[in-house]
Design a protein around this nucleic acid. Structure first.
Length: 503
RNA sequence: GCCCCCAUCGUCUAGUCUGGCCUAGGACACGGGCCUUUCAAGCCCGCGACAUGGGUUCAAAUCCCAUUGGGGGCACCA
């Protein structure tokens, strides 16, 4: 861990949807840097566009962040010394700074109508030119512009981009990037409704909030020079800029689309954090997984707890190239973290999944003995009720054919089932443990000259209703003698019926 | 179309800055084996990559150039 100055970093989502993988990774890196340096992690809501605002999205964003364990130090719900932390509450601040830019000649009023602009763009494209503002209002004398503004004429404020020269900006991962100013546009800073756009609002906020590292997606790379221009126009010291690569779809071909996201959701996958929780993923696993998409510690360490990440994360080891999302790796990490959980903790976390799966009365106490049996057998928490739900059902419904042992017929299986029932019935009810049930059952296997799997398989299907289950004798101990015998009897009846039918 | 970014196994990556230790390491997935009452877990083995072409150099995955490929952006969205 390198000792550096405390970092002030911010995660600044706009409330237009759910937290997804890309946002979560950005937030995670923000959080790690803040915690590692003893700095602050700030949550700022970028909600200046009222048209795109989705009610409830802000709360949902916060919920996902908290689920991941990324608690912020300053934010809209908890305040802080640099608030407010919602851009919709900072309108006057942006107007003041926009005015400052106009006064210093770095910005100007533009009275062009959206219709004219659209027409202009159309013509430019027809001519094969890249769309850009043509500068019509750039040279309106300040006094005249002011008069028109005061007369109530609709207007926006644009950045007065230099027509010549170049600007060199510095990204931590990519080094210096030099672009020609003429390829940049006179971007709009303040809309005609008086609201600042991202380009102005985020820069003002980042400066005012003392942000030391701006970590954001690489979709901001094209406007990065504009942002640097704004900082320099104000005469402010720039933060360290870090542009993270985007996530590609698993095939590596292109960015995730809305359509892709829907398809994933059908296949027990999702790019949305709130879905991942529902699908049975651990926040530990999700963090571990996304941390490693674009960052690495060394050539072999892959398992990281949050504490590990806080200690070992470093901006220097970030990678600038895009990364394809690999869901099977998430499954792998989830399995790893499930196995790393103390049994008591796993039991606690499993409770809601049993409730959701239709076992509303299951408690931690019920789950405690079962956890050791399934801990290595599930990769997501929602699999637990599927594999161990039979423990909580009054009755099980085996598929009759599955009761027939391998290489035996129905009649022979009935016989084996009857003998197994006898053996189990002979074990005392209050000592129905693996130590007492397994040896006599093994003796039976020898006596019958069969394979263990043949005999145990019948009992397994009879008692659990499944071909695949946790280890048999531990399972029987939890199910108890009474239910075991009851289910054996039922299985024997089913087998008898089958035997009669095939005669 | 214009601008910007990126480039090692199918995928995530180590190695690139500071050329030689790289007949390129790890992980996921995949194939096989061991263990085994089912299924997992665990262990072992295998498969598999420096995009291409030019340079520079005694030596290039590593440096330079070009090409190709991929990604992103070009809104009174963020």
């Amino acid at each position: 861990m390198t000792t550096t100055k405390p970092a002030r970093v911010r995660f600044a989502p706009s409330p237009t949807g759910f937290l997804h993988l890309g946002g979560a990774r950005t937030a995670l890196y923000d959080y790690l840097l803040a915690r590692q340096t003893g700095g602050q992690f700030i949550l700022r809501i970028e909600d200046t566009d009222r048209k795109r605002y989705i009610p409830g999205a802000e709360e949902e964003l916060m919920r996902s962040l908290r689920w991941l364990g990324l608690e912020w130090d300053e934010g809209p719900d908890k305040g802080g010394p640099y608030g407010p932390y919602r851009q919709s509450e900072r309108k006057e601040i942006y107007q003041k700074y926009a005015q400052q830019l106009v006064d210093s000649g770095h910005a100007y009023y533009c009275f062009c109508t959206p219709e004219r602009l659209a027409q202009m763009r159309k013509e430019q494209q027809a001519r094969g030119e890249p769309p850009h503002y043509d500068g019509t209002c750039r040279n309106i004398p300040p006094e005249e512009a002011r008069r028109r503004v005061e007369a109530g004429e609709p207007h926006v404020i644009r950045f007065k981009m230099p027509k010549e020269g170049t600007i060199t900006v510095h990204d931590l991962l990519r080094g210096d990037i030099t672009v020609e100013n003429r390829t940049l546009d006179d971007y709009i800073l303040v809309k005609s409704d008086g609201w600042a756009l991202y380009h102005l609002a985020a820069m003002v906020d980042d400066h005012l909030m003392g942000i030391t590292h701006v970590i954001r997606g690489s979709e901001w790379l094209p406007t990065f020079p504009l942002h640097a221009h704004i900082y320099r126009a104000f005469g402010w010291e720039e933060p360290i800029w870090v542009h993270l690569s985007v996530f590609l779809k698993p095939s590596g071909k292109g960015k995730m689309s809305k359509r892709d996201a829907e398809v994933f959701r059908k296949g027990h996958k999702s790019i949305f954090i709130k879905d991942l929780e529902e699908l049975g993923y651990l926040p530990e696993a999700v963090n571990n997984w996304i941390a490693l998409m674009g960052w690495s510690y060394d050539d072999h360490t892959e398992f990281f707890t949050m504490q590990d990440l806080i200690e070992k994360f470093s901006l220097e080891r970030l990678k600038p190239s895009p990364a394809a999302v690999n869901f099977s790796k998430l499954d792998h990490f989830n399995g790893l973290h499930i196995r790393a959980l103390p049994e008591e903790e796993l039991a606690r976390r499993l409770v809601p999944y049993f409730h959701a799966a239709g076992y509303p009365d299951v408690t931690v106490d019920d789950l405690r003995p079962i956890v050791p049996l399934i801990q290595t057998r599930i990769t997501t928490l929602d699999e637990a009720p599927k594999i161990a739900g039979f423990f909580f059902r009054e009755d099980v419904e085996p598929v009759p054919e599955e009761l027939i042992a391998k290489k035996l017929d129905a009649a022979q299986s009935v016989e084996v089932a009857r003998r197994a029932r006898e053996v189990l019935a002979a074990v005392p009810e209050d000592a129905f443990t693996p130590e007492n049930t397994e040896p006599p059952m093994r003796a039976l296997v020898d006596e019958l000259g069969l394979k263990a799997g043949q005999v145990f398989g019948i009992v397994r299907v009879a008692v659990t209703g499944q071909r695949v289950s946790p280890p048999l004798f531990e399972t029987l101990a939890i199910v108890g003698k009474a239910k075991t015998i009851e289910r054996m009897d039922k299985a024997i009846k089913m087998l008898e019926a089958l035997a009669k039918k095939t005669q």
